[in-house]
Amino acid sequence: MNSLLRVEDLKTCFYTDAGMVKAVDGISYDIQEGETMGLVGESGCGKSVSALSILRLIPYPPGKITGGKVVFEGKDLLQISEDEIRDVRGNRIAMIFQEPMTSLNPVLTIGLQIGEALEIHRGLKRKETRDEVLKLLRMVGIPDPERRIDDYPHQFSGGMRQRVMIAMALSCNPKLLIADEPTTAVDVTIQAQLLETIKDLTSRLGTAVILITHNLGVVARYVNRMAVMYAGRIIESGPATEVYEHPRHPYTVGLLASVPRLDKPRVGRLVPIDGQPPDLIRLPPGCSFFPRCSHRMQQCSMERPELRIVGAGHLAACLKDLGS
């Protein structure tokens, strides 16, 4: 099978004063052309770090990719030269970040910031770039682009800024778009609009998407497959509807119980998961979720469960099979 992106046993660490943090602790997944995958988990579970690791954007020091492979279009992105990875960034793989406010440069016009990738990757001249940027602005739904192309980021609303980010990311027609919590920082009413825009445009352009979010409700609607991360590892993955309907890992179950669901009638109250995510410097020897798990057994504190097949394309890392 020829996947667009294959992540294999990726490991990324941060070296801090307090000790080594295994932010991403051996995760693997595949993405096919044009496919949409959701990467779900609480903040601090390593989902953003794993995405940044794909493009080698982890700041070193203190962060470092310590192992694994990221094979994209047949090449391991972790092995190629700095020049080669730059040619992938923004061109073949693009990113949208969480905070549109801080992710855009406050002292440069949005026209310049969107056009940059076109200039370096496609070698467009100034005039051509401007035309292309206008086209992009129109595409992502920014009204009156001729007037707004020379505006600065602070002159836009949060939602509009994120549309600028989308235009920037899609400018070179990438094969893969990594959207890191693209709607977290904007108003709830705008969130759905933004996600629809991303969904429409990427399906039109045939772009594969990794959608990173802590909001399970979002995932089910917009992705084909999803992977749930906890403490730097993927603990469950599978087709989105399957995981949503039949979660097999206690953490996923807990996560689902803690968010409002639109697909089912409201039954009772939302139940938050007890406890705190574990300290990544001193992970317990067994299952990382053990201290918070309501299904824990003696065995779980000693043996770390590996991912195993629990259904068609459905994997879960739990010693207890919740499904049966």
Partner: peptide, 8 residues
């Protein structure tokens, strides 16, 4: 059991 994992 849980105390061991609590961050002091």
């Amino acid at each position: 059991m849980e105390e061991i994992f609590d961050k002091a």
